[in-house]
Amino acid sequence: MRPIILFNQVNKWYGDYQALTNVSAEIKTGEVVVVCGPSGSGKSTLIRTVNRLEPIEQGEILFDGMDIHGSSTRLNQLRTRIGFVFQNFNLFPHVSVIENIMMSPVKVLGEKRTNARQHAGELLERVGLSHKANAYPAQLSGGQQQRVAIARALAMKPPVMLFDEPTSALDPEMVGEVLNVMRGLAQEGMTMMCVTHEMNFAREVADTIWFMDQGQILEKATPDNFFRAPQHPRARRFLSDLLVH
């Protein structure tokens, strides 16, 4: 299968600090990639470059063959095809849940409101929040907000979903409900790239695990190989630190 996302020798700096170093990797259609590693290793930076929330200085990132960071790329159109879920949900607090989900399909894709509303209703049902359609984000728990955020990203029917630490801002008892939704997506064959610290989720759902440290991908492996026999010493230390507590 051809890669839908391809990183080719990507380098990124914040001033003198090199955030990404020679990152080359690919994600195939239908693949679930989990990116893990210690804080500050560049995981979030990497995932944010995929829809150009962060610019890169060198290299290229191709999405379905299109150069994401090319100057002639139609960025808004490209972003409609890449769902993005943030750590802090970032729901729009001034409109209701259903309006949050409908906004982009109506305003960007030009869908009719009735169609968009129906589709939004289906998505809410899928994430188990039909009864919250008319609530406002401030009235929802963190887990519920994140599930709405996933529904909002799905409303654009993107072929790829990116998750940037989707459970890191949640209370522990709400992590499960969000992971369940993500698990469901993975089972339906959605192409996903997830930055997460949930190692059980990674073990269970990922097709491939990328281990990052200091802006580099040190290891790419199947979950089995990664958790049983990590190749890179830094990965071994990371895993043993996880097990200690």
Binding site: N51, L53, N90, L91, P93, H94, M103, V108, A153
Partner: peptide, 29 residues
Amino acid sequence: PQGQYEASRALGMGHIKTLRLVILPQALF
């Protein structure tokens, strides 16, 4: 929060649309 702007842009809305639909309604209120 910067995330409001980013979330809107990540959904494919342009700068002006983001201001009109997401940023200004909140900022003015």
